[in-house]
């Protein structure tokens, strides 16, 4: 299952903060070979690993000042039309016109006000309340295009797992793109955990391309809202528009679009209608459901748990047994689909 990434329980204050430099212009990857590697070609020597390392070290230094913490969550500072804003996740800020406490890497605290949020894409915008002179001094990062992401390219993620910790700068995670937004959602293997929510995902030039959103039981399943979802709605978010998630109506009824029969052990797909999502995913009548997203399944409760924070339209990996063999399939979840 997937779950949002707020620091849990006694939500620890988390903040990130910036060390006082202003703009962070995109760091060009000038070396052609390095550019090839960062866009997905495998490195071939220890020297190439060292070149990658040097770039990543530099990149973290560049983006750390603009990566901030909110209580139990994370965010990143950007500038637009001369004004500072914080990009964040909808499940962090929740609604408009709330006071948001922002903490920079250098310890400085900023006051912010939440603007709009889109709970479907899980993006939100926060206005940073500082005077114009101060605003120009705030660190910020450039905004990239998530539509340009390709599978396999390298990315860097920052956030505050478990919330901000004294003396610890926002831990960086290096990873690669496993799913691009057109495939339903942006997934990387930058491992996240509660507290990383709202934190930035960067390309290797240091441009924000995603906002940390959700995880699942599979450690490689780290979902980010694509930054394009935020930028395409900028004006609405600026006006404080809050779009609710459609899933409120019946998340518990999310399913595979094919009825499951429960008994002892694994449930069995009783019937798989032609043209259904289940049929398109390759499921057949009689398949026994072993695993959903890495979680073993033996009861209806297990299915509900595993699907808890997925949404309609998400693709989830399942393992079924057919004729004594295991098959891994990917299936798109449906609202109200049989289970």
């Amino acid at each position: 299952m997937s779950r949002p990434l707020l620091a849990t329980a006694a939500a620890l204050a988390l903040a990130c903060a910036a060390a006082g430099q202003t703009t962070a212009p995109a760091t060009q990857v000038t070396d052609d070979r390095l550019a090839e590697i960062f866009s997905g070609e495998e490195p071939e020597s220890a020297a190439e690993l060292a070149a990658m390392q040097a770039h990543v070290q530099q990149l973290i230094k560049q983006v750390l000042p603009a990566t901030v913490s909110l209580p139990g969550a994370s965010g990143v500072l950007v500038q637009r039309d001369g004004a500072p804003f914080l990009l964040c996740a909808a499940h962090v800020t929740l609604e408009a016109d709330k006071d948001i406490k922002i903490r920079m890497t250098n310890g400085r605290q900023l006051a912010g006000t939440s603007l709009g949020a889109n709970h479907q894409s899980d993006v939100s915008l926060v206005r940073v309340d500082v005077d114009a002179e101060d605003a120009a001094k705030l660190p910020s990062v450039e905004i990239g295009k998530s539509a340009d992401l390709v599978r396999g390219q390298w990315v860097l993620m920052l956030g505050h797992p478990s919330g901000r910790k004294k003396g610890r700068t926002a831990p960086a995670r290096l990873g690669r793109v496993l799913r691009v937004p057109e495939e339903g959602y942006l997934v990387t293997d930058c491992t996240m955990q509660g507290g990383d929510s709202g934190g930035p995902l960067f390309d290797m030039q240091g441009r924000v391309v995603g906002i940390n959103s959700r995880i699942s039981g599979n450690l490689a399943m780290n979902m980010h809202a694509p930054v394009d979802a935020l930028m395409s709605e900028w004006d609405e978010l600026l006006e404080g528009k809050v779009t609710q998630s459609r899933r409120r109506r019946g998340r518990s009824r999310l399913g595979f679009g094919a009825p499951l029969k429960y008994g002892d052990g694994c449930p069995v797909f009783e019937d798989v209608a032609e043209e259904s999502a289940a049929a398109k995913a390759g499921l057949k009548k009689g398949d026994r459901l072993f695993e959903i997203d890495g979680e073993e399944i033996s009861s209806r409760r297990d299915v509900m748990r595993a699907l808890r924070t997925f949404r309609a339209g998400d693709k989830v990996e399942i393992v079924v047994e057919r004729d004594g063999k295991g098959l891994e399939l990917e299936i798109e979840l449906e609202q109200g689909g049989g289970r």
Binding site: R179, D189, A220, E328
Partner: peptide, 12 residues
């Protein structure tokens, strides 16, 4: 049976 698009860590 693992499909190529399977979600697994490739950075490691």
């Amino acid at each position: 049976a693992l499909p190529a698009q399977s979600i697994r860590n490739i950075t490691q």
